[in-house]
Amino acid sequence: MQMKKDIQQSIDQLLFNSPTIDKVGVEERVARFQTRSIKGDSKLQALKMALNMIDLTTLEGKDSPGKVQQMCYKAMHLHDELPNLPTVAAVCVYPSMVKIAKSALLNSKVNVASVSTAFPSGQAPLAVKLADTTFAVNEGADEIDMVISRGKFLAGEYSFVFDEIAAIKDACGNARLKVILETGELLTLDNVRKASDLAILAGADFIKTSTGKIQPAATMQVTYTMLMAIKDYYEATGKMIGMKPAGGISTSKLALHYLVMVKEVLGNAWLSNEWFRFGASSLANDVLMQLMKAETGVYQSPDYFSID
């Protein structure tokens, strides 16, 4: 018991060092990322980079094996009419679909990510969350996207949240762990920063904004705040942490603004799917449309791009 109290205190101490965040200042900074000029070759390169960073996602109760298989085919063959396209980074599914996705993606470099820990609310006991995670890992998931207990976080029970993340990290084995903060429920950027620091210290390989089930999902302000946490951690330890904004990024233009932000905050080293992902379902087709426009000079009808 004494030990637990010590841990609680040391976690409080760590979070005490989280800097406060001024929302107005963040908004101003973020606006500046949107004025950089990306066109021509710079844009083509960025669009392909963005495609390669996508976690193609389907997280519906009505998901069928067929739908998941179709999405996996799309993940590998984004638009065969265009040569030299990358694949997406991963497909993201519920644990029950991991096996199907895994076999559909056999012989490809596309990873399978699975949400877990009673996604999206996280309202389940730790044993259930651990079982959920272990199941997904055993089914073959390369990456685990867990949710934090927002209720406990908002109640100030930081050590509970910390322990939970650390336990899930253990259960992940070799799978990389993405920790979803669900920033739309954390309400302030100060909380986003604290939760980011907490998740990173507890063992997250990636920190992720949202489940996509709560509005607002990813925003540039929130992502900037999380990128600054990653930067500070890197400066202090030399260890890189990945970032995944998820939900609400559906246009190429917005995706490019995010890439500018990653480049200017963290540097070119983070510009690969090893360290940066977009959690998105409709972004891919918009990027493909832009690439076809660059190829042909005209915009194609959305009907020419498969919806899976």
């Binding site: 950089r36 000029s37 066109k39 030399g238 500018v260 080293a269």
Partner: peptide, 18 residues
Amino acid sequence: MATNKNIPEVEWEYAPSL
């Protein structure tokens, strides 16, 4: 910035926009 994994770092520069 150095990386702790062996991935080639991309060079991505903005387009001049006069």
